[in-house]
Amino acid sequence: MAKFTVRNLTFRYDDHLALQDVSLDIPANEITVIFGPAHAGKSTLLRCLNRLNDLIETEAIHLEGQILLDGEDIYAPRVDVTELRRRVGMVFAVPIPLPLSIYENVVYGLRMRGETSSSLLTERVERSLRQAALWDEVRDRLDEPGVLLSGGQQQRLCLARTLALEPDVILLDNPTSGLDPLSTAKVEASLRELKADYTVVFVPHSVQQAARVADTAVFLLNGQLIEAGPGERIFTRPREQRTEDYVTGRFG
């Protein structure tokens, strides 16, 4: 069953064609990897899925086509965008803790949704930090500022912050770009556990990482979808020459 269905998506801003007629299904409870060289449109596609592109400060953004989440058009006029973003969480390439304590970072989204019960918040903090494999490292210092954590810990804090909202989908835009191999392995391990409960859409750091975590793989090039399919097939027996060239390192 497809969580997201993207139909003929074209996205333009400031005369720049970022995505061109992209159609794909994103299956529920799997890790879907969107990979490709720089400027392929990976982040743009990701940001279309929770309408973060709406924040671009220019009049000249233009979107055609349809994105359905559980069969509902997320660009329909009466969609509550804040509600959508709670259902479709996002982790960015660079960890950006808000200038708040670890605890307050995790509960930020919940507080904004109007949760005030401190027992619920505290319970949710522990659960999400455990899911993000950070609990044991920070359990005694939840009141410290989030920025005092190391880079890898900050990124897991950002993951926990997204998980605290219990979203349906988690978007990860190259979350391990600044991390050492050990922290990267921890994040990847968390993702594999998370897919039981969440749909994960992941822009990887490298083709190797894509191959390690992908259930479904989607190859983008210059804003166009070249090939999509099960990860093991895409990375071993791609049908398209351009996919093969990229996967085997002939360009990119």
Partner: peptide, 20 residues
């Protein structure tokens, strides 16, 4: 980036201004 993060966590524009 704080504004983008706050919005991505489902905060409204006003909540973002008020809280962050």
């Amino acid at each position: 980036r704080f504004r983008v993060v706050s919005r991505s966590l489902g905060a409204s524009r006003w909540q973002t201004i008020r809280q962050v």
